[in-house]
């Protein structure tokens, strides 16, 4: 898989490139600022992007804006956004288009190499991977009306789905069987009135429904 990487710190850029390449990705372009990022995102060979939120020249949220812009031009283009801090607001903006293929993680999650790499793969495959901190912030709000229909267990499963975990991982985390997880997920799909589609797509829809309310 061919990636575009944007990260302004030279050390981190080199580290990330090494990390991704040693895990079977090809880093097509590794850039350090917003203008260069906008340029390389036009490369039709790129399959996905890993982008830091804060980039020069403005040192604000250049990376996030570039990610949103490229997804407006290339709908569903997978982007993994990483940052020193996460904002619920930014997660919402990234997913506002209603398409999957979005990841939003704290930078230090990179330290769990296997999970980070897995996250990038899930995003490239059209899934959503949200940082547990974002998920916790959304869970703290108690106004999700249609989600009141979900049982506490179903809500837990949905939160883990938002973090981009597989059924097996969810089962492991909640100490239940994979079959039970599948049952909960079906319950979530029917309670949220999600139209029938392939499973991956419905997972993304469920997470979006949860995020937008």
């Amino acid at each position: 898989m061919r990636l575009v990487l944007a990260e302004d710190h030279a050390l981190l850029r080199a580290g990330m490139t090494q990390l991704l390449e040693s895990n079977g990705f090809t880093v097509l372009h590794a850039v350090a600022d917003g203008d260069a990022l906008a340029e390389v995102l036009r490369d039709p060979d790129a399959d996905a992007a890993v982008v830091d939120v804060r980039l020069p020249p403005s040192q604000t949220d250049e990376g996030l804006r570039a990610a949103i812009a490229v997804r407006a031009q290339r709908p569903g283009f997978p982007v993994m956004v990483i940052s020193q801090y996460v904002e619920h607001l930014y997660a919402r903006e990234l997913l506002a288009s209603g398409e999957g293929g979005v990841g939003y993680l704290l930078k230090d999650r990179v330290s769990d190499v296997a999970e980070f790499v897995d996250g990038v793969r899930r995003v490239a495959a059209g899934g959503t991977v949200l940082d547990p901190e974002v998920v916790a912030a959304i869970m703290a709000r108690r106004r999700e009306r249609p989600l009141d229909r979900l049982t506490p267990r179903e809500r837990e499963v949905l939160a883990l789905m938002a973090e981009g975990r597989s059924n097996a991982a969810i089962a492991g985390h909640l100490v239940v069987t994979e079959k039970a997880v599948a049952k909960h997920i079906n319950g979530i799909f029917s309670k949220l009135d999600l139209p029938p589609a392939d499973d991956d797509h419905r997972r993304v829809r469920a997470v979006l429904a949860w995020l937008h309310l």
């Binding site: 804060r54 604000t60 619920h88 607001l89």
Partner: peptide
Amino acid sequence: PVLADRGLAGAVEALALD
């Protein structure tokens, strides 16, 4: 950081969202 990124308007929106 969100105040640095988005200014008062964006940062207040972020607060409201949480």
